[in-house]
Design a protein around this nucleic acid. Structure first.
Lengths: 213, 213
DNA sequence: TGCATCTATAGACGACTGGTCTAATCAGGC
DNA sequence: GCCTGATTAGACCAGTCGTCTATAGATGCA
């Protein structure tokens, strides 16, 4: 009766465990064996689903960005909130999840970008498309926020919404990178504050419900 | 006559070639063999100078930050310029050198932070101290710039100079990371523009001589 | 039901590279 | 010539990615 081939199941299990392990240790530092042992998948199966470690990494990133973009989409369209509130909620979530190491909740873009971009052209392209789409989605919400008045018109002075989204995304990328170094939330708190500034918002009036700590 | 032991020479040669190769391919992806072959140092010698690959990585980062900080110090104290001009010169230089891959001019902080922080506590600490000192040095120049009036007082509203320096450094870290992905200068140009905004400078009036392109 | 066909699993295996360490060599002082 | 310490050569084994053969399972058709 179950028409979906087992294919998807095993393949996805390899991807899921791979994401956790590689998200923790990086791409080159992890061997296939470790992933396959953890996923309880024999080595022989691996090369049935993926033609090489590089192809696997490509699929890993594709899978990651697909689900990440879906989650982001949901977060940026949730009801009973202005677009500005949703955006700040997005970054508040980023801050709260990335500040210290949840094994599975790691951002693969932060973890792998530097390592993999010079290693595999194919993986680099996936990273490029993924980050591009995230930024485009953020830009869309920024435009909507300005249009509806939840963000001040003055943000337009700096440049297009796409430029602003690019800057903000990169700001958070860098903050996450440094959070890996410092292992505390200071970098992400700084990014959150700077986000207010770049959006021309009053830093003292919190638009969204922030966790005090 | 030459009292300095050859030690320093060989050791430094391993560090220099290691920096170029690891700066290009990452830490885990590069084997000692490759570095030692390039440096024309026999494999057996390696463990005379370094107790392990990790210790080597630690020394590599220490060496890198030492010279980087010295260069930065020079750049931020050069005469016939205001502190604001020097700061913008620092970032203009960053933009111009990192936008596409000079084999040896790579920023090891960008390249290795994500990969190494979860891999080696000792290397992480070196990264932490190094970035902290860079940020502190930037903060010092920001304060001096405000004091002398080459940066507007209004930057103080956002927070301390250290906070601002933190934000700016992270912004550039993220921009460099994304530049690795996109392989163009768009991310760094966006960072440069955002730097003006975060410093409350008029983006159209260029304080420093920028290269048009 | 029986047989053929194709997908998926199983893991041994090869060729190679990884970091590490012991044993030998070398240089210079006495 | 011997002793001492710095330097090097290469063995070592665990682990790498990827291949390959053999089995197991499902599906199609008769």
């Amino acid at each position: 009766m179950n028409m979906t081939p087992v294919t998807g199941d095993v393949r996805q299990r390899i991807l899921n465990t791979g994401q956790v392990i590689i998200g923790g240790k990086g791409f080159s530092a992890v061997g296939l064996n470790e992933i396959l042992k953890a996923a309880e998948v024999p080595k022989g199966s691996f090369y049935h689903y993926f033609s090489s470690k590089e192809a696997f990494g490509e699929a890993l990133l594709e899978d990651y960005f697909t689900t990440y973009l879906a989650q982001t989409e949901e977060r940026l369209t949730q009801p009973v909130a202005s677009n500005a509130e949703r955006l700040l909620g997005y970054w508040a979530h980023w801050r709260d999840t990335q500040h210290y190491c949840d094994p599975s909740g790691k951002c693969l873009a932060v973890k792998l970008a530097a390592e993999v971009s010079d290693l595999s052209e194919r993986m680099r392209r996936v990273l490029q498309q993924g980050t591009e789409r995230i930024i485009a989605r953020l830009a869309q919400s920024i435009e909507a926020a300005v249009a509806e008045g939840s963000l001040p018109q003055s943000v337009n002075i700096q440049g297009s919404a796409l430029e602003l989204a690019t800057t903000l995304y990169q700001l958070w990328l860098g903050a996450s990178l440094r959070a890996k170094i410092t292992r505390d939330r200071v970098p992400l708190d700084a990014a959150f504050k700077a986000t207010y500034a770049l959006l021309n918002l009053d830093p003292n009036r919190s638009l969204t419900q922030e966790r005090t700590q």
